[in-house]
Design a protein around this nucleic acid. Structure first.
Lengths: 109, 109
DNA sequence: TGATTATATAAGTGAATAATTATATACTTA
DNA sequence: TAAGTATATAATTATTCACTTATATAATCA
C-alpha cells in the first residue's frame, strides 16, 4: 500500500531543519558547510539530517573537490509530493543571501 | 517562521495510521469504532492518534449520542497543505466498503 | 438507577530520535 | 608525503513516540 511508503517520507519532512534544507535546495544546490552556517548547528548533526534525506532518496549528493553539494533528487518517486509541500512554504532564500553578505558562502561556493 | 510551524504538522502526518485516518475523512465523517475495526488496533491507540491530529487542529470532533465522529477541519490553517498531500495518496474508500460488507459499519453509522 | 457501550486519559515500557563528542575518511595543498 | 579542511560515521545520552493495560468519563438503555 502506497500510504505505508508515503508516511516515512512525511516523517522525514517533519523536522524543521530538514524541511528548511529541502526548501533551500528546491531550486539550487548547497554544500554542507552552508547548512552548518545557516542552522548554527554542529557539522555531524547536519550530516545526520542529510543522511536521513538521502536514505529516502529525496536528495542527491555530488562531490566537487573537498566539498559535497546536495540537491533535490528530481528522479524521486515522491518528487510531486515534495514539490506540493514545498510550494506551501515560504522562500528561505534570504538565509543564503545573508550568508553571502557575511562572506561565509564564498569560502566554498 | 512559518516553516517551524509546518514541520510539526508534517510530523503528525508522518505516521501511516494517522495519514490513513486523514485520507479516510478527506470527504466524509467517521467514528472511532470504525477506525478501531479498520486498523485492527486497540481503541486507546486509535484515540491517541486522533488526539494528536486534534492537538494540531487538523480534525474536528462531533458527538452524536454515544458516538464521536471525526472529520477534517476545513478551517485549519494548514488545510491547503493537507489537501495537497492527500491528493497524492490513493483512495482508502475500500476500507470502509469492506467494513460495511462485514456489517461492522452498521453498528454505529 | 444500574448495566452496558463508546471513548478518553493515565501510567508504564521498549523502540526510535536528535543532539553531542570523538573518530574516521577523503580530498587538497604545501 | 604531511598538514589542513570538509564531511561522514560511531558511540552515547536524553527525549519523544507508539503501543499496551488499567481506569475514568459520558451516553444509552433496561
Amino acid at each position: 500500500m502506497e500510504i505505508e511508503k508515503a508516511a516515512p517520507i512525511l516523517k522525514v519532512l517533519g523536522d524543521k531543519t530538514r524541511l528548511t534544507i529541502l526548501k533551500l535546495i528546491e531550486h539550487q544546490t548547497c554544500c554542507v558547510c552552508e547548512f552548518v552556517e545557516i542552522f548554527q548547528m554542529s557539522q555531524p548533526s547536519i550530516s545526520q539530517h542529510l543522511r536521513k534525506l538521502k536514505d529516502v532518496h529525496l536528495i542527491q549528493e555530488e562531490r566537487r573537490g573537498q566539498w559535497i553539494f546536495y540537491s533535490l533528487n528530481q528522479e524521486s518517486e515522491w518528487i510531486d509530493l515534495v514539490r506540493a509541500i514545498l510550494a506551501q512554504l515560504p522562500d528561505q532564500q534570504e538565509k543564503l543571501t545573508e550568508l553571502e553578505k557575511s562572506g561565509a558562502r564564498i569560502t566554498c561556493c
